[in-house]
Design a protein around this nucleic acid. Structure first.
Lengths: 188, 188
DNA sequence: CGCCGAGTTGAACTGAATCAAGAAACGTGG
DNA sequence: CCACGTTTCTTGATTCAGTTCAACTCGGCG
């Protein structure tokens, strides 16, 4: 749980009383692998910190789901667009492996925004860092070939390639599992 | 200039004194078309509100630039990733048409964050809404065909198709100018 | 053991890239 | 206001990466 405080303190100085207030809102929950945290049409009510495990976000499809994002231990995750707008999500979030989360509800977070000095700053920093991730992703999708994206993934997150089913990776990269299987074969 | 205040008040109530403080920092500037606002390697020092005009963001390339975003009158624009991290931008921002901007500097904005009640909230809301745009974009790039994206652009921003050179649109959609020219021909 | 989902491989097809050339529009200087 | 050069757009031919459909292998699990 202290990793959450240090996560914040990378960007914002947090007083003990603010941390006290914040941490009192956190709930720890364990999930089995392949457990849905949020389904399409539901409103995201939690912001989660991943203690251990991995999560994917995807738009369910008849044949192959469209997996567009992953989150790993040490990161915050949430259907953040649904969360901040409090409107139904058009995608699902689901554990890939057994996962432990520390969660805070939307209402409690609003409370923190109102009642702590650092709350607003943390909220802004969170939104900003999520924005940065998406900018990077956008440029990757427009700028790089599928093979580039696979190789970059490989260098940035080598563990990921072993832990995550190929079909999720393929979807994330923007191609079919067959195509990724061929790329893999070609470059190995 | 009042459109800026109403822009904010869509989400946050702003006191007269806060608005006074905020607006005192704004500078109005006129730009000719095809004027670079920020070049690759420079650090974005301004957040701009577009009074009139249109702007594109692109990564310069030998042959065809990679245009990945547009901004129009009534919107805020900035190389926001460079702005919030205060690190060099890997892309350029440039007016497409003659453009009028109201600008605030990074330092003045930090001042507003510190010294007004609504500053942090506005900062958070800004980051959140930019994040939402990028989420939408990501799903569009993964979920839709080039033709889908063109047609959606066409219905959402019909004026855009007339004002903006085809090669910029093509790049934004993620295809070559030739390919877009053919799509255009086919569906007309 | 038998089943099922995940991954691999093959063959035919397709949307878009690339290379190339010509037509149209655009801006600038005389 | 026209003439010229430059850029943008269009069109054609070829190539290529990735899709689709289909069959087969492999590993885990009831």
């Amino acid at each position: 749980m202290h990793q959450i405080r240090s996560y914040f303190e990378k960007t914002v100085k947090m007083s003990d009383s603010d941390w006290e207030f914040f941490s009192s809102k956190l709930k720890r929950t364990e999930y089995k692998k392949r457990t849905a945290l949020l389904r399409v049409g539901e409103v995201e009510s939690h912001l989660n910190f991943i203690e251990t495990g991995s999560i994917r976000m995807f738009i369910p499809k008849e044949e192959n789901d469209l997996t567009f994002a992953f989150s790993f231990s040490g990161q915050f995750m949430s259907a953040y667009d649904s969360f901040i707008t409090q409107t139904p999500s058009n995608y699902q979030t689901e554990t890939i492996t057994d996962t432990v989360l520390w969660s805070i509800t939307f209402d409690d977070l609003q409370d923190i925004y109102r009642n702590t000095d650092c709350g607003q700053i943390i909220g802004r920093k969170t939104a900003e860092s999520l924005f940065l991730l998406k900018v990077k992703r956008e440029q990757s999708l427009l700028n790089e070939s599928a093979e580039d994206r696979y190789l970059n993934l490989f260098t940035e997150q080598p563990h990921l390639i072993k832990e995550i089913p190929l079909k999720f990776l393929a979807s994330y990269i923007g191609i079919t599992p067959q195509a990724l299987s061929r790329i893999r074969k070609r470059i190995s």
